[in-house]
């Protein structure tokens, strides 16, 4: 038997894929573009990097429920409320897929939650900005989820198997998130002048933070080279940012909003848009805990964890009692559809 970390044996044995890198074949597996699976040998640095990246990603999904979740009770129609509920539930689901993936590397889910709450692990800077109007819900779907899709589609080919598989599932669902946001904005743009103002105001506030989601410029991103060599990342931050800008410009035109960047223009020679740089000092401040909403987001997460503690322990105690009463071998596989 291999290592028996949580989920390791199960994922390895039931994934239906041949282990790529047994017997020190990690470099060879990476060179051949094969996936690394949980029980494979891997360098400590690779394992640490994967746990950190997957945990940060999971935390982002969980914290990401808050900015939009605040609007569920204030959605203007039952249809918009149902859509928003489904979207926020998806974010919870994405977080859970990712915590599962982190656990295949020997990380402990409770420990990861503790690190998030204690501020020892980070989450995406974008969720530290406030949602001021219902137009923000639309702009988050369009720009924030759009940027997330740009980031995540290449991660479906990330070298770590469980992460790549989680990303495939996430990307499928993320497409609904972006489209519902864009449709919401189209509806508002066909509304009153005040509604159009709200959309433009939200775009003005979210554009630069969305560009920051791709991380610092390549020249200031010390981990990129190693992550590319390990095929965890497939494109650099600046490549993905460029792709996002090129995709978004025609969408903004179709919507009838202005992206708040005077330097934004088509460059015939490059075949791409030129655009201005976000305020990278702001990104540093927000990442290090000094954004507009950092404290609120973590307080809320801590409160949810503390408020749920009695439920978790009660459920665990109930499970112990009922399993004692029922004896071993309960449950079967007869429940067919």
């Amino acid at each position: 038997m291999g290592r028996q970390g949580a989920g390791v044996a199960a994922d390895q044995g039931l994934g239906g894929e041949k282990p790529a890198a047994g017997g020190g074949g990690f470099d060879q597996a990476i060179a051949r573009d094969q996936r690394i699976e949980p029980a494979d040998e891997m360098p400590d640095g690779y394992r640490r990097t994967m746990v950190r990246q997957i945990a940060q990603h999971a935390h982002s999904e969980i914290i990401g429920m808050q900015p939009e979740g605040e609007w569920i009770t204030r959605a203007p129609t039952l249809r918009r409320k149902a859509i928003l509920l489904a979207k926020v539930q998806d974010e919870a689901g994405h977080g859970l897929y990712l915590y599962s993936a982190a656990e295949t590397l020997g990380a402990d889910r409770g420990d990861l939650t503790r690190r998030l709450i204690d501020g020892k692990q980070k989450y995406s800077s974008i969720f530290n900005y406030p949602t001021r109007s219902f137009a923000d819900v639309g702009v988050i779907g369009w720009l924030v989820d759009g940027a997330a899709i740009c980031n995540q589609v290449p991660l479906c080919r990330s070298s770590y198997g469980p992460y790549a598989r989680a990303m495939i599932r996430i990307c499928k669902e993320e497409s609904f998130h972006q489209r519902q946001g864009y449709e919401l904005l189209m509806t508002m743009m066909h509304g009153t002048p005040r509604q159009r103002e709200m959309v433009q105001d939200a775009v003005d506030r979210w554009w630069w933070p969305s560009l920051m989601m791709f991380g610092p410029p390549d020249a200031q991103s010390p981990n990129t080279a190693q992550s590319m060599a390990w095929k965890i990342k497939r494109h650099t931050n600046d490549e993905l940012r460029q792709r996002f800008v090129d995709m978004t410009v025609p969408q903004a035109a179709a919507l009838g909003v202005t992206l708040p960047d005077p330097a934004l223009r088509w460059n015939e020679e490059r075949g791409h848009h030129d655009f201005g740089q976000p305020d990278w000092d702001e990104l540093k401040r927000v990442i290090s805990g000094d954004g507009p909403m950092n404290r609120r987001r973590l307080d809320r997460r801590r409160r949810a964890d503390e408020d749920g503690a009695w439920v978790r322990s009660a459920a665990a105690a109930h499970a112990v009692r009922t399993s004692r009463a029922a004896g071993p071998g309960t449950g079967g596989l007869d429940g067919e559809a």
């Binding site: 038997m1 291999g2 199960a10 047994g22």
Partner: peptide, 10 residues
């Protein structure tokens, strides 16, 4: 779940 050992896959 019992799983085969990836190091012994050969």
């Amino acid at each position: 779940v019992a799983a085969s050992d990836p190091l012994a896959k050969d």
